[in-house]
């Protein structure tokens, strides 16, 4: 996988959320949703991000993914990381 736009990454994130938090199956996700508000504790958040990183085959330290406040920002950050890798 190379450079990916954040619109392409967002579904990977929501897929990972449902995988880690099965009770959110069918939940209508918005870019403004925060993982915390969706009921993810710190361990769940680490698991969700790691699932997405693995799907993107993107090896970045988890600590570098801690800034984003919502799903849209997370997708944006991961998109930047894939671009940086593609360069």
């Amino acid at each position: 996988m190379v450079d990916m736009r954040s619109e392409e990454i967002l579904p990977l994130i929501t897929e990972a959320i449902v995988e880690v938090l099965p009770e959110l199956d069918g939940h209508p996700f918005a870019e403004s949703d925060s993982l915390e508000a969706l009921g993810a504790d710190s361990m769940d958040r680490a698991e969700i991000v790691m699932v997405v990183l693995e799907r993107l085959d993107l090896e970045v330290p988890l600590v570098e993914t801690h800034g984003p406040r919502n799903l849209g920002e997370l997708a944006g950050l991961l998109s930047e990381k894939t671009s940086a890798r593609a360069r």
């Binding site: 361990m43 680490a46 698991e47 790691m50 990183l53 693995e54 090896e59 988890l62």
Partner: peptide, 12 residues
């Protein structure tokens, strides 16, 4: 082959 993707929850 890709140890960095180990599930964080493995730690507990």
């Amino acid at each position: 082959a890709k140890p960095r993707f180990l599930r964080p929850g493995y730690g507990m």
